[in-house]
Amino acid sequence: MASRELISYDTGATVKILKWVSPVFLGAYLIWALLPLFIMLMASFKDLLDAFTLPKPGQWGDVGVFFDFSPTITHYIALFAENNFGTYLFNSLVASVGSAMIAVTLGSMCAYSLSRTEFRGKKDLLFWIISTRMAPIVAVIVPLYAIFRSADLVGTLPGLILAFTTFNLPFAIWMLKGFFDGVPYAIEEAAQVDGNNRFQAFLMILPLVAPGIGAFVILCILFAWNDFLFATIIGSGGAKTLPAATKELVQPQNIDWGKIMAAGVVTTAPMIPLGLLVRRYLVAGLTMGAVKE
């Protein structure tokens, strides 16, 4: 059976140059990606004066002042004590995990049936499902707001979960359908012959699409967690999430940079391990070799 070890071949000059260029490029990209996060993290531990102590442009020798401060966690304490960030963190968590769970449950069943059955108009149905994601959120937010308000869902967590789900579900169906398509139906046939009914056979192949489902759940959570529009419009008031709450730290008379930076850290930190997880889940190829092609 084919193994997945890398084979190296003799290569020409271009490839050798690329071998040099790519680390340089990756290094530059890394700095570009990580620097803002780094500055945010540092600033969240500085008081206002230290935060704006910066070296003059071009004075690379003075970079040290950037690190010259006495760390303080007052911003963090203030966030949770004065600004209720505990509640907002909870709201963010419930809304994003809740919508991801609903989207994955409904989405996997829908994706499974679309993957396993043929019927007239299937292609149109699939297109219709994805077309609901083609319009930008701003384009639908006004009618959606009207609907949600007449259903008394504005400013409630269930309302926010529903709003996130309407946008995550089409995405779930398309993504998971791809994963189910990759699992040969023969495996379910074997499961049925082994004494399972159709639903049990579906459950038997779930481990095979588990990487896909895992990756998808995380992407859904990320989407909902970072969402701003729904959070401010549908969730405003009773179901404020972290990004919406952070926005309110910007007051006309006073922009509280320290708290904003701390809020940024609080919002970003839980998502980093999830990002790392997604990478692990997206390693596909589990079905390799079980069915003769």
């Binding site: 495996i187 074997a190 012959v193 095979l208 069915v291 003769k292 092609e293």
Partner: peptide, 14 residues
Amino acid sequence: DIAMVFENYALYPH
């Protein structure tokens, strides 16, 4: 109440 050997094996990969 049948047992079947499939032409394409159809084993459970996991």
